[in-house]
Simulated scan of single mutants.
Amino acid sequence: MLLTREGRRIHCDLLGDLPGDPARQVVCLVHSLAADMTMWAEQVPALLAAGHAVLRVDLRGHGGSDAPPGPYAMGALGEDVGFVLDALGTGPVHYVGLSLGGMAGQALALDRPAMLRSVTICDALPESLRNAAEVWGPRIRAVRAAGSCAPLAEATMERWLTPAYRAAHPARWDQILRTIAATSAEGYAGCAEAISDFSFVARLPGLAVPALVLCGEDDHAVPPEEGRRIAALVPDGRFHAIPGARHLPNVEKPEAFNRLLLEWLARNAG
């Protein structure tokens, strides 16, 4: 569906009915930079089978959501998701975000904790890298110069998934590659600018919702040390590294990822 906020469209979809029974809850899934809601294809069946409703949101400039001129701020990305939750009347949700989605989720959890039952932060940073300008500056300039994310697609895939995954799942690899290449250049650049200029480190010790932190054990884009850092900062944080996965453990190792997620949701069902 499409929702309108401040003259721009936000694309989302809700699978399953909104629960009237408190035991049947909504899980909100939010994707990484240069992805869209289809990044969660391996999670949706498991979540629905467990009795949850599933809400997927495309961040601004991604998927079916419009790309206003950048730069964007991490708090604004979180507030876009909060707008969707308010508009749909979901009540408190379990938020699951990966990479950019995990950073936007930290913003939402800190700014509007009453909207969340729990937050799962996957392969995400608690603050910008010290060398953010060196990492993100060339990528931002490249996509803006080309008017496309296509020049970054192959290198991004190599950071996200292992060669073994590519060999075993060529069709899924190609789906994700095409999504990266088709992402709005302005949406990518604006979100990359948000990643380049944020910090939640001082605020995370006051996080008021339960937090699970997951990371691919072989993630070079966001090393597991960053996930451990988040888990150490938040009250009663839990951290798990998923072996054999790079930046998208939900895609590369869905059985392990889904097991950890479903156990977490069951533990925080109250």
Score class of each variant (00 low, 15 high):
155 A>S: 11
156 T>A: 13
157 M>T: 13
157 M>H: 06
158 E>A: 15
159 R>H: 11
159 R>F: 10
160 W>N: 07
160 W>D: 00
161 L>I: 15
164 A>D: 13
164 A>R: 14
164 A>I: 06
166 R>F: 13
166 R>A: 11
169 H>R: 14
172 R>K: 11
174 D>W: 07
174 D>E: 15
175 Q>P: 02
175 Q>I: 12
175 Q>E: 14
175 Q>F: 00
176 I>V: 10
178 R>D: 14
178 R>V: 05
178 R>K: 13
179 T>F: 00
179 T>W: 04
180 I>Q: 11
182 A>Q: 12
183 T>R: 10
184 S>N: 06
184 S>R: 07
184 S>G: 14
184 S>A: 12
185 A>M: 04
185 A>Y: 08
185 A>C: 14
186 E>G: 08
187 G>P: 12
188 Y>L: 10
188 Y>P: 01
190 G>A: 07
191 C>T: 06
192 A>F: 09
192 A>W: 02
193 E>P: 03
195 I>M: 13
195 I>W: 00
196 S>M: 01
196 S>K: 00
197 D>P: 00
198 F>G: 00
199 S>A: 02
200 F>H: 12
200 F>K: 03
201 V>T: 14
202 A>W: 05
202 A>H: 02
205 P>M: 08
205 P>H: 03
205 P>T: 13
206 G>L: 07
206 G>R: 09
206 G>H: 11
207 L>D: 03
208 A>N: 01
208 A>F: 04
209 V>F: 05
210 P>I: 11
211 A>K: 01
212 L>G: 09
213 V>M: 05
213 V>A: 10
213 V>N: 04
213 V>L: 00
214 L>M: 13
214 L>G: 06
215 C>M: 07
216 G>K: 06
217 E>P: 11
217 E>D: 15
